[in-house]
Amino acid sequence: MLLSVDHVTRYEYDRPVRGVVQSHRLTPTKFAGQRTISWNVSVSGGTMGGGFRDGAGDWVQAWSVAGPVSHIEVRVHGEVETTDLAGVLKGSRESVSPEAYLRETPFTNFDPALRALGAAALSEDILSSAHAMSASVSAAIAYRPGSTHAHTTAAEALAQGEGVCQDHAHALLALARSQGIPARYVSGYLQSSNDGMAHEAAHAWAELNVPGFGWIGFDPANQCCPDERYIRLGSGLDAQDAAPIRGVSRGQGIEKLLVTVAVQTQQQ
């Protein structure tokens, strides 16, 4: 499938700031399921800094913007050809040991309720366990936009029984890791459509490490494994670690964030 992405993130400051530094994970992962046709990231008034491929195979790109500046726009535009690999991250090059993805983070700590759900879904077969864990997260946390915020933890989302894709992913990470299955947070895009499912164009899901397969994606928010509608950008221990854009501004200005994302099918 040929997908086109238009993603604009606009930061507005009520008072000009003295400068901004950002770290991006905004480049499609190199793996057998996706081929980049064109890809362009720009930052208004920005200087491109160092870029490198990290141990997990993600391209990390630094940017800096010299102030004073009262707004910044990060524009992503590109086309990616995708293939459905049933969620398996085939052909990616990485050097981090899966065991590095077993630790708790503030977003994913092993709350007793999460641990119990994980234990209930665990069976002899890791792949079946992974599917069962994803299904149990889908069942336990209803998709409801606006019900949580950027700092909601997996335990909180589970307790209130609703959340968005970030919460689903965090909950699945806690379930899996608490049972000794390495798991990581993945950020990316999902093709927009109107079929009533939990589509968020700027999307997030989880990957679990399954012996014999390696990393496999699970999207509890949509009760499926990532297919040709998904574009994978980067991964980490949680949403903060895997964020497509991390940034800091110098100055007193209060930041307002405006995001628009469109991911559409192109005629082949």
Partner: peptide, 24 residues
């Protein structure tokens, strides 16, 4: 570096780790 490690650090240098890992 608050962009790589603790986001609430006031002691560090935002973006330092990216410069480090890209050899700067």
């Amino acid at each position: 570096d608050p962009l790589c490690f603790r986001a609430d650090s006031m002691l560090g240098i935002p973006g330092l780790m990216d410069v480090y890992r890209s050899g700067g």
